Simulated assay, not measured.
Amino acid sequence: MEDILTETSFYNRLVLGAFLPNRVWDPLPHFLQTWLRNYIGANLIYFVSGFLWCFYIYYLKRNVYLPKDAIPSTKSMLLQISVAMKAMPWYSLLPTVSEYMIENGWTRCFARISDVSWPAYLMYLIVYLVIVEFGIYWMHRELHDIKPLYKYLHATHHIYNKQNTLSPFAGLAFHPLDGILQAVPHVIALFLVPIHFKMHILLICMEGIWTANIHDCIDAKLWPAMGAGYHTIHHTTYRHNYGHFTIWMDWMFGTLRHPTDDDMKKM
């Protein structure tokens, strides 16, 4: 796993060197450097994706995608940012631990696609994504079904339960343990199926962008993606659309509710 350790060290130097003086981060152990890099990266993804998307849909295209009464207040968005900021140091710990395990050869992660061939790489990626979809679906569903978990963890996120309280900044506004539990399937999958290290990192980054997107209340109608149209229903009914990137798991386990069906019931 020397190649992966070299790669993570490069990422640390790239990010930390761009934002902090060398004397601040260079003396730190590799594990802490990795955590600090993940913390900075998570904040960048959260704020850049959140601010750009909010600026576009709430100001630049105001009342185009959402009616005026569906636009969340600045106060609501600041509250969501506050909740996310309290959890961000803990969120950053999970990918740091997963990278530590990868670097030490405890997982099935590989450094180069040439280690397995392109056909094998694509097959492994599909299996990895299925495991993640399955795991996140059931983790999210159990956070609703197991009442103590909902009361003490997941309810923090579900105070945002209407269009005018949901925003891209709600995407990471979770109790820290709740956010970690929902991301754990990414780590579990590392032990079950080989996955390219860069792709693993890319998918973790995509999580941050995706969670912002599915909380903007805009139904993009990109079947079979579990977009904001589906996820807004989840925030209003609490019993549907637990899924992640796609609607497949909700379809398989009988919890899928389409935005078009929801509109018909309202009418």
Rank of each mutant, 00 (worst) to 15 (best):
F169I: 07
S167R: 07
H215S: 07
K198L: 14
L222A: 10
H234G: 02
R239I: 09
W251G: 11
L181W: 03
P176E: 10
C217Q: 14
H154Y: 10
W251L: 15
T211F: 08
M206F: 15
T156L: 14
I188F: 14
K162E: 14
L222P: 00
A183P: 00
L153W: 06
Y230K: 08
S167P: 05
A170V: 13
N161V: 03
L181P: 02
F245T: 07
A212L: 09
A155M: 14
Y230F: 15
V193S: 09
G227W: 02
M249H: 14
T236G: 00
G179N: 02
P168T: 05
T232I: 03
S167D: 06
L222I: 13
Y242L: 03
T246A: 02
L222W: 10
V184P: 00
I159L: 12
H231S: 04
W251E: 12
W248R: 05
T246H: 03
E207K: 15
F245L: 12
N241V: 08
T246L: 07
H158M: 06
R239E: 12
H154I: 09
T211K: 08
V184L: 15
A220G: 01
N164H: 13
I209E: 09
I180P: 06
G208R: 06
H157D: 05
T165F: 00
G208T: 08
A189K: 05
F191C: 03
H157I: 12
T211A: 10
W210S: 10
A212P: 02
E207G: 15
A183S: 09
W210R: 12
M249N: 14
H158Y: 05
D250G: 09
N213V: 14
A183T: 13
W248Y: 15
Q163N: 14
N161I: 02
H235C: 08
N213Q: 13
N164S: 13
T232F: 12
H244D: 07
W210C: 08
A189S: 12
H154P: 06
K221F: 11
Q182D: 06
I218R: 13
I195H: 04
Y230D: 10
P168E: 03
P185Y: 00
T232W: 05
I214L: 11
G243Q: 02
G243D: 03
Y160W: 14
P176V: 06
P224C: 12
K198T: 13
N161W: 04
L181T: 04
H231I: 04
H215V: 09
Y152V: 11
V184Y: 04
D219T: 01
M252H: 05
L190P: 07
F191V: 05
T232A: 10
P185S: 01
F191N: 01
M199E: 09
I201Y: 10
N164W: 09
I180W: 01
L192P: 10
I195A: 07
G171D: 10
G179T: 04
G179S: 07
Y230S: 08
